[in-house]
Design a binder for these strands. Sequence first.
RNA 1: GCGCGAGUGGCGGAAUAGGUAGACGCGAGGGACUUAAAAUCCCUUGAAUGAAUAAUUCGUGCGGGUUCGAUUCCCGCCUUGCGCACCA
Length: 829
Amino acid sequence: MKRYNPSEIEAKWQQIWEQDGTYEADLHDTSRPKYYGFSMLPGITGAGIHIGHGRTYQFSDIKVRAKRQQGYNAYHPIGWDSFGLPVENYAIKVGKKPRQAHDEAKENFIRQLKRLGFSFDWSKEISTADPAYYKWTQWIFAKLYEHDLAYQKEQPQWWCETDNTVLANEQVEGGKCWRCGNEVVKRNLKQWFFRITAYADEMLDATDELNWTDMVKTMQKNWIGRSLGAEVEFAVEDSEEVITVFTTRPDTLFGASYVALAPENPLVQELAVGDQREKVETYVQAALAKSEVERQESKEKTGVFTGRYAINPVNGAKVPIWVADYVLGGYGTGAVMAVPAHDERDYEFAKKFDLPIIQVVEKPENEDDAGAYTGEGELVNSGRFDGRRSALAREEIVTWLESRNMGRSKTTYKMRDWLISRQRYWGAPIPIVHVEGREPIAVNEKNLPVELPDVDDFKPKGGNTSVLAEIDDWVRVWVNVETGETVNITESKPDGDAWVEGQRETDTLDGYACSSWYFLRYIDPFNGEQAWDPELAKKWMPVDYYNGADHAVAHLLYSRFWMRFFYKLGLVPTPEPFKRMMYNGYIMAPDGNKMSKSKGNVIDPMEIMDSGYGADSLRVYEMFIAPYDMDAPWDTRGVPGTYRFLNRVWNLTQEYVAAPETGAANDAEILKATHATIKKVTSDIEDEKFNTAVAAMMELVNTLYKLKEAQPIVKTEAWTFAIESLLQILAPFAPHITEELWHELGHGDTIHRDHWPKWDESLLVADTMTIIVQVNGKLRAKLELAKDTPAEEVEAAALVDEKVVQFLGDKKPAKVIYIPGRLVNLVLK
RNA sequence: GCGCGAGUGGCGGAAUAGGUAGACGCGAGGGACUUAAAAUCCCUUGAAUGAAUAAUUCGUGCGGGUUCGAUUCCCGCCUUGCGCACCA
């Protein structure tokens, strides 16, 4: 009997699959339903993949493999997130140019991914740093600019002094840079933005409908952070100035006892007067000098009175104007009306600085008196609004303000526009030419891509520009101010008044921009005429299944935003890119921590595979270890377990191959177990319950072993069906061993296309039922009865059961509960 | 602080329209085969009492509640993971 030797058969089949194009999808084939699934494209940073990454790609691999076997035109693409900070930093670390560093590291990635046996369509591989790809990233930029969704703005931006670049809000995590983890600072810079806030409402409203991991949906919603409220204008006493505040509680307006401005608010400088002026300036200086992290670390309220007063529009009350750093410059209007009685922060502030606390909403009686009451209730001390419910009064007060032009309802978002320019070399150049005295000019499509020039020293110098600014020949360019066409400055100037000398934008696009549309390029990867063919998009979009373990906010928001934009242009058939998006859990190191190279606790999949277990055992264990979305610690002893399981499958099949052609076998039981397992595994894969799918297959194998002990294997139809079905449902998990055994059974084609077993529901219906008999809710007996036994007979049978009688004694049950087909509960008083 | 999860044997985890708790695997113990070991196969394995593979009791983070019956539903806590965090 042949022994299971993974390293031999895995290498063999990987080579054959590649030769035969087993996993290549015909993107133009319309004869079958499509299935489009993949995991987030890998970013290459040199370390190679660890056990957790491998698992991430396996989820989509299994989903797509199953569909491919079920007859779908299934596409599992692969590509590289090649542009951006991570790759550039990696290049700096290894002392090579980014493209070279990337390409070399990529070889290692490819070797690892291939070794794991993923069913990627390698013939359609893409890279975001390929000019044929970023040409279209630039084209999208130009389209956004044309539709006023890309713009330049000067304002204080997050800046990382380690990575020498600005960062988007989404890339600042707790005041620290997403790449290097160092604290970020603010720099005042003119930067490019995408107007993602224009889609805030649409995206928020659509989020609930998405069939995504709930956690990710929640994170998206929180990030967008919609607040319904109002803007209210407070006139400044003895001044023309007006302070506009944003509030979600206009119903508490009568309780406003001061107005607070953020230190960044420009009005602060104008309002501070007299002997307060110096104090205010000192305070503002100190606040602005502090890093954002420092400002947030201490919740202790600080502030300074400006010496000026504002007028509450509802009652004409004179309230002091303060400067306080708990008011954020970048949110709302940078000014708030403070209602200490009904806002915890205002309450703390008022307590500290001894400002009035005016209650305007009745508290419920059981509410304890300390602190601010932030709930709803009847209004008091609120003039003509007294007695109204706070929730209703919100609208009424806003209406009242609107009629006097002193306020209006307003929706505010936490999400800001997406900052996409980077002062770094390794990215797609922003396709813009600047000409003195004109709006920025988008480079004409026919001159795209604006290629990233090769430079010797690409490392950032810390200034406000990328190193591209130093390449004079590249920056200076002839541009047609009407068409956006460009000609290299070293050529002679074209004829015509529209041609002038301009200067290229020297910032590059954030890597996130490049990865915000790759799922569309996958479906038309070699198109030289357009970014993708809208007809193909109609066929392939949306993505049926998308998996990731990172980028729960930024990447997904950006992709959704762009997709909605493309939808409006008629380039894609749906506004949402990902029909189903799942966020898988992490595999933790055996020490319970996240795997990381610095901790030295990384498990290398290659080592496990090369130690003789092979890819299939590793793959099966990766699925078996834990449910999809839960973190689980790696246990090195798990792989031998799944290896044993695959060995049992191997040996069982070998026995079948050697078995006699004729004879008797326990066919009915074999068929029943097999059909039940097919059903279970098929639906488990559909529901992404891969761990229980593996368990079900193990159970089937255990059952078949028991059956063959009782009666040796014969090549009956039942045994043939059992063995072939087992291999087919196991194939997405363990593609190599199943392919090998499939061929050993005499099949000439691959198991991985168009082979999925069907189950017969009628075989699964039992003709008897097991009735659980409980006495006072505790299991006391089991009855095996005919399926359609009437209720009275079931109850009667329960009452005379030997064990039940023991428990009942001479008492009669006070109550008998019968759940048809399941259980009888006899209740004693 | 707020939001979203999760807490079940020695370990990873099964099972929730409320109805046999602990599937499957790891680990552990025992046995078969073998000169021996590995591999393989078979059996046992939640805890307590018990000679028992007789029986009973306890048992799904803690405290209550609803119910004939709660791992599942409700209320109040504790622990822990992730995200956000002075967002007015």
